[in-house]
Design a protein around this nucleic acid. Structure first.
Lengths: 224, 224
DNA sequence: CAGGATTCTCAGCCGCCTCTCAGCGCGGAT
DNA sequence: ATCCGCGCTGAGAGGCGGCTGAGAATCCTG
């Protein structure tokens, strides 16, 4: 479970990081709103702990911005204020929970676990490339409107390709990320690319999964 | 706005009553669970503040009982404990929010206002997926119109699946949430999935409870 | 304490998935 | 045009994930 803590007070941030790591979470830190927003966008976190008083961009606006981008990562707001309007505002902006400083560490962990348990009560992310759509949570793939049945390995391969759509990825990269080895015969990649093509390529249409001879493969598509 | 405060400590109860009345609420008091349940049933309150440690009937059971009677008045639970399971249990039983003592009075008021703002657009009484319906409060399951008899373990498994219907849930997740362990032989999940299928799958129809090889299981259905 | 329900373990079976291999096609270079 | 080598594919073996029946262990209830 990965947690992003956005907190400008260094000592508080470090304490949280240490404590949460001891609970078994993977913890990243950001020290201002700009940095926090950037990491939250790209980090695939399971929950974000967000201070309100932050340099550059306030926690309010970080949360607001994330929601505007359809990013539904669970957010727990932290604040030194404790007026009712702060909390109400925070919840209105799309935060999922709210704690006022000083807070009990035990309570914080309990709230985090609750958010994690609730998990994806929001919309899960769907990856897209062209008319392909892949939903990691539901493990479902569609081309246009028609569902596509994939085996686990095929699914993992397509997920990797779709996450890097429009880029050329080498067979070695694919082996590392999909097979978790690098000294395997690259032929297995070719075989599975073949399987995928038979399932996702539309006949008489330009191939979505292109071979770049000598370099690797590229999944064409503008979605994302 | 009428508030019912169920709290056995007289001084705390009186303080809450005075404070909330000063905020402009109409406040009634109950000093044990039995009394609180009775008043909540007949009092037409906009929100109920419910201590967990109560004489006669615990706050847990008051809330559970209310929900079983299809009474969806917003409930804010109060507790001196602060473990995660207390909070999670409270929310699972149908409470709408949860505060641990000692709590800030300002926060309490803010939470109450939040509940009032959300209003009584309460959660659906039953969880649905396809033609399956599961009522957590009454522990009843039906497929279409016909009731289905489930053992406790089967019920817990189906409840978890139905709360995540259309998503793929791994055996490990299932073990954590239904069995509350993670290092058990996953075969027990397979066995219980088998039991469930025999009870809920309609013959000659596509299986509602699908196996996603290498990933877990998915309960198909659009309800919810 | 007896009987039944429920939970869980175990072993065997089945079938899908994965991967290897060998042969062929085709692209690019000379 | 010819040759070389990269990539594609069909076939098949083997492994492994998942399913199930049987039965032991445990809990519940009267």
């Amino acid at each position: 479970m990965r947690i992003l803590v956005v907190e400008d007070e260094r000592r508080m941030a470090a304490a949280l990081q240490r404590g949460l790591q001891a609970e078994g979470f993977a913890v990243d830190l950001a020290h201002d709103g700009e940095d926090g927003l950037h990491q939250a966008r790209h980090g695939e976190y399971d929950v974000v702990v967000l201070d309100i008083m932050l340099p550059k961009i306030s926690g309010y606006n970080v949360c607001k911005q994330l929601r505007a981008e359809e990013n539904w990562v669970p957010v727990l707001m932290l604040s030194a204020k404790d007026g009712e309007y702060d909390m109400a505002d925070g919840l209105d902006l799309g935060a999922d929970d709210y704690l006022t400083k000083p807070f009990s560490y035990v309570v914080l962990v309990a709230r985090l676990r609750a958010l994690l348990r609730r998990g994806a009560n929001r919309r899960p992310a769907v990856l897209r490339a062209g008319d392909l759509a892949l939903d990691p949570a539901r493990r479902r793939v569609t081309r246009g409107e028609t569902p596509v049945e994939l085996t686990p390995r095929e699914f993992a391969l397509l997920e990797f390709l779709i996450r890097h759509h429009d880029e050329v990825v080498s067979k070695t990269e694919i082996l590392e990320h999909v097979w978790d080895t690098f000294d395997t015969d690259p032929n297995v990649v070719e075989v599975y690319v073949g399987y995928l093509r038979r399932k996702i390529d539309v006949p008489f249409s330009r191939n979505a999964l292109q071979t770049v001879r000598g370099a690797g493969y590229r999944l064409a598509g503008d979605g994302g």
